[in-house]
Design a protein around this nucleic acid. Structure first.
Lengths: 332, 332
DNA sequence: CCAAATATTTGAAACGATTCACTACCGAAG
DNA sequence: CTTCGGTAGTGAATCGTTTCAAATATTTGG
């Protein structure tokens, strides 16, 4: 099959130790030998076997990335950031979609442990679970992505979701909306809970009333369902704030199909500011999060934890969300 | 650190061979022993070290997936399919974005070889390169995704792009359009070339005239650039066919910003039928490809090649694209 | 109750790299 | 001519599994 270090050693008439040195500490090898061995390596097309290397070393140069859904452009952007940062340091990334299911998450955590990944970036479906500790016990660094656990000693990169919910409602009320619908996923998702708490807080200050519409899927299908439920309300709110852009797009699609004009009759505000938001039927106002940047930051944090070892200090980095105004919202 | 097979053996008072049997061939182990060893495994929280296992076995349970851009919803869908199919067979997937760059692709191929992946699914930037042979020489199965090499002995899953280009133009000419702009990426991308050839073929039959606008980036930024170039044309075509939906969305955004009405003044047709297409400012007509299904099929094909070994027969699977009519196209 | 047949279990070799104590060699110093 | 210091190179042990021939235990038939 493919050439091993031993084959190279034999062909170059040196010992395996020397070949290993050529690969890992070329400075201790005499120039002539170095050249000869390098030539042999090229000749045989030798590529070191990562398994064997990492078996001895005790760790690998791979990371796991566990997100709820890469089909969500927000996470796609995050993934891009992670990949670029990892790549820069010569790490490869395993991609895992948990679909917010604890079961799938468990399976993946197990796979990642088996693969002996060096570290894991995860948006856990359930922050309280012991999955994370399980990995850490095994010497796998864990950094939370878009989640945060207070008081716990670990790195995390998140966005201030409470503030996000708050500025959303502050914005809508500043436009004169007093009856607002809040379309969200299950409250067990921390982002949903946090944004909701920001929503409630800001609503109280502005004395606005909030109607919650909760659906199970945080994608455009969920949005369609939400819109149908919305239309059945006794008194229609004048603005809708959605927990993410996919929901908002589903809502938009359905409302437009029912001849409801946006923003004339109803203002619509999303969350995430995905790439597609400006191209929507009515360009979607949204709360932007620095997705790519978050991916890069999280990966850098994780890798520095992996490589610095003991003198690493855990950090909780929190980005601030930002309002992006487009055509889907307007004064009442 | 974490428990090894040897630790389990010691604690359960059996030999390492027996523990290994419990893991891999439980049917040869006596029920009482089986139970005891399993209990010990659970107690110590033992997870086998994938490296050591695969080092011995000579291959791993990992796949590589190399696509030009996961941020493109088409490839995201494909990736989802691949992941689900791989997961079902207990394989993990490395995600790699080549960005159509031969350099990045080379780097990733090297990483994947080092990781000793069992197989690779790739949309190669350059079909003629010897990267693919390099991997095969090392015993890594390779399946082409959304590309095809005629006469070569390998599996591939693709879409009939020539036909796709053809039905697009047939449709537009059937609506009465005779002056059509074709917005595409570099001709070095096989899909672009194939679709272009379908375009030309159908145009000849219908005696329509085609104006080609080539941009370097196949995303919405590229689309914006294309639209600007389009607007500078001496005589404006009445329809635009874009090589993918992202391009089309960029074009749409820009044309609408210039107060050009779609489809009244210009018909716009995309390719891929991504999830957002129906939510676009003007719901986008498009040529649909079964992305998720392609991912699943490709992964299944690859894994059957990996596992069936010699009695595997290479297959070239070709899906047929389909026209999806929405509001962005209309009769002249 | 014994031999043969069958069912379990054992333990050492192997996978391919890294590591490190050790040897070989060379020139310089005593 | 020996001794020392330093540089280059060696090769056996090691990592945690799987595999498999051999050893041992158990069952069966006579």
């Amino acid at each position: 099959m493919s050439a091993s270090l031993r084959d190279v050693a034999r062909q170059a008439k040196v010992s395996v130790g020397t070949v290993s040195n050529v690969l890992n500490r070329p400075e201790v090898v005499a120039p002539a030998t170095l050249a000869r061995v390098k030539a042999t390596i090229a000749e045989l097309g030798f590529v070191p076997n990562g398994f064997a290397r990492h078996l001895r070393a005790g760790f690998s140069r791979t990371l796991g990335l566990v997100v709820p859904d890469v089909a969500n452009p927000f996470f796609t952007e995050v993934a891009r950031g992670v990949e670029d940062a990892a790549n820069k340091r010569d790490y490869a990334v395993f991609l895992c979609n948990s679909d917010e299911s604890a079961l799938k998450e468990d399976r993946y955590v197990n796979v990642l442990i088996q693969q002996q990944v060096r570290g894991v970036l995860i948006t856990p479906s359930d922050v309280k679970s012991d999955r994370l500790d399980l990995m850490r016990e095994r010497g796998i660094s864990v950094t939370l992505l878009d989640r945060e656990i207070k008081g716990k000693n670990q790195c995390s990169v998140s966005v201030d979701d409470v503030h996000g919910g708050q500025i959303a409602i502050e914005y809508l009320t500043s436009l004169g909306h007093q009856e607002i619908a809040w379309v969200c996923g299950p409250n067990s998702i921390p982002q949903v809970a946090d944004r909701a708490s920001g929503v409630v807080k800001a609503a109280k200050v502005a004395q606005a009333s909030i109607t919650t519409i909760e659906v199970s899927l945080m994608n455009s299908t969920g949005g369609e369902e939400a819109a149908k439920r919305f239309l059945e309300l006794a008194k229609l709110p004048t603005a809708i704030f959605c927990a993410n852009d996919l929901l908002a797009l589903g809502v938009m699609r359905t409302l437009l199909a029912h001849k409801i004009r946006i923003p004339d009759q109803i203002s619509l505000l999303g969350y995430d500011d995905i790439n597609f938001a400006p191209s929507a039927a009515v360009p979607l106002s949204s709360i932007a999060q620095p997705a790519y940047q978050m991916g890069v930051t999280a990966a850098d944090l994780l890798l520095s934890e992996c490589e610095d070892g003991d003198d690493h200090r855990h950090q909780q980095i929190k980005f601030q969300p930002q309002l992006v105004e487009r055509a889907s919202t307007r004064k009442r």
